[in-house]
Design a protein around this nucleic acid. Structure first.
Length: 300
DNA sequence: AACTTCATCAACCGCTCGCGG
DNA sequence: ACCGCGAGCGGTTGATGAAGT
């Protein structure tokens, strides 16, 4: 039992404190954290001791080394599968702690949010304040993907997402749903897919048929997986972003944004972001359709 | 060189869960 | 069934250093 009124030290740990903690764990194992304080070994709470051990002192930690491309890919995939269950995700990454994974994700998230903010402010400059989701709904042709989606199988592949690429009609994407799709029933409707430990995972076989847990690999250069670009690329797979014009066209900012973030969006991350209104009016309809296909599949 | 912005990391806080009494 | 406690987890913050302007 910890003494509630006893002095509690906070802040950075000293080498001496680390030694005391390590010797406690050697004697008692990684438990009885509160006894460290009650015995007067350290003026730290049991919580603090446990955290220090788990995040810094535990053997076989990859402290100081950056996440490898494979680890990044694992985190992205596992986050899409489990949500923010950092401790669970960390069990698939040897030598990584939940704090590591959490920090890694937080950094990427902030970066992504900033990119979106920039994209938004760029789009707002000198343009009408028309926001895409405020536009009236446009009639849509039947979506050949929808039946597959309803059946719980994703048809998010490059052939199908291009199915409207020549169409003049496209569906509105309600922004709140686009940015924060309703995932309440995801777990109930989606078959539980076991994640594979890092040392057993293999690259995705074919880019043409993806299950939800095997979303397409990033085919583009993007900030947080730049080392991955050589992985799993199918040179024959059409790049959905080719539907954009070349740089310098009116939709350049949107194009740039999606070029930089398409992989994140594909992987369903957008659902986690609290993003202010995005102006979509300089995105070509094909891109919006593509985006909707992606977010629809991520809702399954 | 000074300043700003961004990335990373360590640690704390609040909450929940499970267990034993 | 209830309560108290310890352990664990996820969110958040603050410090620090690197990179950019």
């Amino acid at each position: 039992m910890e003494r509630p009124n006893a002095y509690v030290k906070k802040g950075p740990w000293t080498a001496e404190e680390d030694e005391v903690l390590i010797s406690h764990v050697k004697k008692c194992g990684p438990r009885d954290w509160s006894s460290i304080r009650s015995k007067g070994l350290l003026p730290r709470t049991g919580k603090s001791c446990r955290l220090r051990w788990v995040n810094k002192l535990r053997p076989n930690l990859k402290t100081g080394s950056k996440f490898s491309a494979e680890e990044e890919r694992m985190v992205i995939q596992l986050q899409a599968q489990f949500g923010n269950k950092w401790a669970k995700i960390a069990t698939y990454l040897p030598g990584r702690t939940d704090n590591d994974v959490k920090n890694f994700w937080s950094t990427r998230r902030k970066r992504f949010e900033r990119i979106l903010q920039k994209s938004t402010s760029l789009n707002n400059r000198g343009k009408s304040p028309l926001v895409r989701h405020e536009l009236p709904e446009v009639k849509v042709p039947p979506d050949p993907c929808s039946s597959a989606i309803e059946e719980g199988t994703s048809c998010c592949n490059y052939e199908t997402h291009n199915c409207f690429s020549n169409s003049q009609e496209f569906r509105m994407v309600p922004l709140p749903d686009l940015v924060k799709p309703n995932l309440q029933n995801v777990e109930a409707e989606q078959p539980i897919l076991e994640a594979t430990p890092l040392n057993m995972i293999s690259l995705i076989d074919s880019p043409s048929h993806y299950s939800l847990s095997q979303l397409p690999q990033p085919q583009l250069d993007f900030p947080f997986l730049s080392e991955c670009k050589e992985l799993d690329q199918d040179p024959m797979a059409p790049d959905p972003l080719d539907m954009f014009g070349q740089e310098g066209t009116e939709c350049e900012s949107g194009q740039k944004f999606f070029r930089e973030n398409a992989a994140s969006i594909k992987l369903g991350e957008v659902k986690d972001l609290s993003i202010p209104n995005i102006v979509f009016d300089d995105f070509p309809p094909e891109m919006l359709d593509y985006l909707e296909t992606l977010t629809s599949s991520s809702e399954l």
